[in-house]
């Protein structure tokens, strides 16, 4: 049996172009939450070609100890190298938990590590609690309508943390953590990787708008987008956005996409029309000042995140709202 003082929680830092991604600090917040139920030492692992600047930055801002693994062959975030190196590290030091961000990269590496080490992997974790004596990891299911509390029986439990759910960690102590640097040579053949920006820009009117009227799958037919634009028309300083599914269909432009993979917005007023409200979308708008949701599905998850809930079909409600507005403004 390991003593508490020997138990380890690993956090695998995400970084890109020599910048620590904010989600890394959300992983720290998650690790601290685990630590409340499960006393252990938290250590941040960072892999990269050059890690000095980043590893000291993490040690300084979090007060946590950092292991930096420098791999000359590591261009971008090559998942193959991450999996191989982290497998060795895991088998050497038997961490109780390994935390990744639930991003395309984090998920890929987490699944690989899970199969290679035989450690269970729970993806998209948004919360931690104890049910009886069992430590459980909360994740959304069924379009955000249900929370599942999942437990695993595993020597090493691998977790991917849903970005935008744990908040950013603020350290209690000002004392920086230590940094241990290792150099690893990677000799296997590597899958070539190139990273480029999407051709469309994200320079979008929705990031500046005071009011956003946003459409989701619930609008039904494409013609109903007209209603969304008409509704936006009654608010000064407004813009129209929407969820990914409408962008996929080509009904909206990519720069209008709100959510984790689109633009993240925080207008004074957000009107969600026919949006179900899964965490991918919520992460892009939950900082909004005042949220109104219109959805005919009374169980839609968006209502949990709203100040005002209108359980109506938007095809009848929005015309009624516009008619009422026109009547008022003439009076």
């Amino acid at each position: 049996m390991q003593k508490d003082s020997e138990k380890i929680i690993y956090i695998v830092a995400e970084h890109f172009e020599n910048i620590i991604k904010p989600v890394t600090y959300e992983l720290v917040a998650c690790a601290c939450k685990i630590k409340k139920f499960y006393p252990a030492n938290i250590r941040v692992i960072i892999l990269g070609k050059e890690t000095e600047k980043l590893s000291f930055e993490i040690a300084r801002t979090t007060g946590l100890d950092v292991t930096a693994i420098e791999i000359n062959e590591l261009a971008f975030n090559n998942a193959q190298i991450y999996k191989d190196v982290l497998k060795e590290l895991t088998e050497e030091s038997h961490p109780s938990f390994v935390l990744f961000a639930n991003t395309p990269h984090g998920l890929d590496v987490a699944c690989g590590l899970s199969v290679r080490t035989g450690g269970a992997c729970i993806a998209g974790v948004e919360g931690i609690d104890k049910i009886g004596e069992t430590l459980c990891f909360r994740k959304q299911m069924f379009y955000g309508k249900i929370n599942a509390h999942i437990a695993a029986d595993s020597d090493t439990l691998i977790i991917t943390v849903q970005p935008g759910t744990f908040g950013i960690y603020r350290p209690e102590s000002q004392k920086p953590g230590s940094v241990e640097t290792r150099k690893v040579q990677y000799s296997s053949e590597i899958m070539p990787v190139i990273v480029k920006r999407r051709s469309e820009t994200l320079d979008s009117p929705i990031s500046e708008a005071k009011v956003i009227v946003s459409a989701g799958n619930g609008i039904g037919e494409r013609e109903n987008l007209d209603l969304i634009y008409k509704l936006a028309g009654i608010f000064p300083g407004s813009a129209v956005g929407g969820s990914r599914i409408l962008v996929d269909r080509g009904w909206l432009e990519y720069k209008q996409q709100i959510g984790l993979t689109g633009t993240q917005v925080a207008p004074e007023l957000y009107i969600a029309c026919g949006i179900s409200g899964a965490s991918q979308h919520l992460a892009g708008m939950k900082g909004s000042g005042f949220i109104v949701a219109i959805n005919k599905d009374k169980g839609a998850a968006i209502f949990n995140e709203s100040d005002i809930c209108v359980v109506e079909d938007l095809k009848t409600f929005i015309p009624a709202l516009i008619e009422e507005y026109e009547k008022e403004s003439k009076a």
Partner: peptide, 16 residues
């Protein structure tokens, strides 16, 4: 790999 759902709950409201 042993992993199971212990409990399902309905998400809490986070706004009014």
């Amino acid at each position: 790999l042993k992993q199971k759902i212990m409990l399902l709950t309905v998400p809490e409201k986070r706004r009014e």
